[in-house]
Lab assay of single mutants.
Amino acid sequence: ATNIVGKVKWYNSTKNFGFIEQDNGGKDVFVHKSAVDAAGLHSLEEGQDVIFDLEEKQGKAYAVNLRIK
């Protein structure tokens, strides 16, 4: 899925991951530091509006192509 809109539920910059809540009511999506770095960001803030693509690997969904809304 592409261009999914959501809000950062939480992001832990020490542990380098967090979760994004989808605006469409879907399951929360894992986001890793690598996606944050690829977006040219240092971190994510709770409540921040983002747009992302959804990829699945080994049955787990995660956010890629992250951008600030």
Rank of each mutant, 00 (worst) to 15 (best):
A63P: 02
F19R: 02
E56T: 14
A63K: 00
D23K: 15
S34L: 12
N65M: 07
I51Y: 15
V64P: 00
A63D: 00
L66D: 00
V36W: 03
L44D: 01
N24S: 08
F19V: 06
A63S: 05
S43F: 15
N65R: 10
N24V: 12
A38P: 03
A63W: 00
Q48N: 07
F30E: 02
Q58F: 13
D37Y: 13
W10F: 09
L54C: 04
G25P: 07
V8M: 03
K27F: 10
E46M: 15
E55R: 10
V50G: 01
T2H: 14
K60T: 07
D28I: 05
L54E: 06
I51A: 07
K15R: 12
F17W: 08
V31T: 04
N16C: 04
K27I: 10
V5H: 15
A39I: 07
V31C: 04
I20C: 02
V64N: 08
V29Q: 03
I68A: 08
I20S: 00
G47D: 07
A38W: 07
K57W: 13
D53G: 03
K9S: 05
A35I: 08
K60E: 08
F52D: 00
Q48K: 09
G47Y: 06
S43D: 13
A39P: 02
V50Q: 00
I51E: 12
R67E: 08
N16I: 02
G26K: 13
L44C: 02
K33T: 05
N3E: 08
A61M: 11
F52V: 05
T14D: 13
N65D: 05
V5P: 11
S34M: 11
Y62I: 06
S13Q: 11
N16P: 02
L41H: 10
V31Q: 00
Y62W: 12
N16F: 10
R67N: 08
V29S: 05
K69F: 06
L66Y: 00
D28S: 06
L54W: 06
S34G: 11
F52R: 00
A1Y: 13
F17G: 03
K7V: 06
L54D: 01
A61S: 12
E55L: 14
